[in-house]
Amino acid sequence: MEKGQWAAKFKINAYAWLLLLPSLIFLILFTFYPVIKTLIFSFYQADLSTPEPLFNGIDNYRRMLGDEVFWKVLKNNLWITLGTVPTSMALALMMALYANKLLRVKSLIRTAFFYPTVIPMIAIANIWLFIYTPEYGALSHFLHWFGLEHLNWLGNQELVTWAMIIMIIWKEAGYFMIFYLAGLQNISQELYESASLDGAKSWTVFSRITFPLLMPTTLFVMVIAVTNSFKLVDHLVIMTQGGPDNASNLLLYYIYQTAFSFWDQGMASALTVVMVLILVVIAAFQFLFLDKKIHYN
């Protein structure tokens, strides 16, 4: 490469780096550095009994595999994901189809569907705490009218997961609906008109046109929904603290407990690494595998 050319190229590149610099600094400080630090920490024993972190190889990971609570929160997380993602997505799609069809009260309905999303999770947890309270709670009252026994939703190991699933669906579906609404508005009206001239029934229109054309949105929403199901733990602080007997505990909350209740930094780091790996694998599967089956305009 000639000298002048190299200088010109350097100039362009230097300019680009300069523009990237501010965000790069923040990324390094608050993302890359903590990630690497966490990874390193996960190979150390760092708890209250070791004032100086002590390298212990894969000991934290070995201990994790033998930890019953770890497997339990992982299982809980899986159930929360399976219980909330498909249902909230299906609901979101139905709500979007409905809201999109309306002409007059569109914004009213949209707001009604969307408002749970804008309420902070802590407030939602308080609302649902009231709903689920045995004897005094709204749900108990409701069941009482039908002559049904009240149940201790949050105190029962079997029921608590279901209670959480229902609440999360209630909060999340409206959020996903917004994406579907945007997706629906991107589909040309001509396609529907052409289909109506062909005499396509509404189910055919949905299954052959709307749904396939919404696939990019569906994938996007799915990634958000799955990651959210691992991220949403605020409600546990208010409602159950992971109880009874870790029946409602989730991975992220368990990491928090390990780090700030049990003060085991090394173990918490190892758990964090596992959680990040799980999310990376899920995202990679969705984008690399499912992406191929999706049409983009």
């Binding site: 008109e193 109506s196 001239l197």
Partner: peptide, 20 residues
């Protein structure tokens, strides 16, 4: 009578081809 029973075909301005 609904469009599908009027026995007509239509070509749209943006062709209305199904992209997928």
């Amino acid at each position: 009578i609904p469009p599908s029973q009027r026995n007509i075909s239509m070509v749209f301005q943006n062709y209305a081809l199904y992209p997928h």
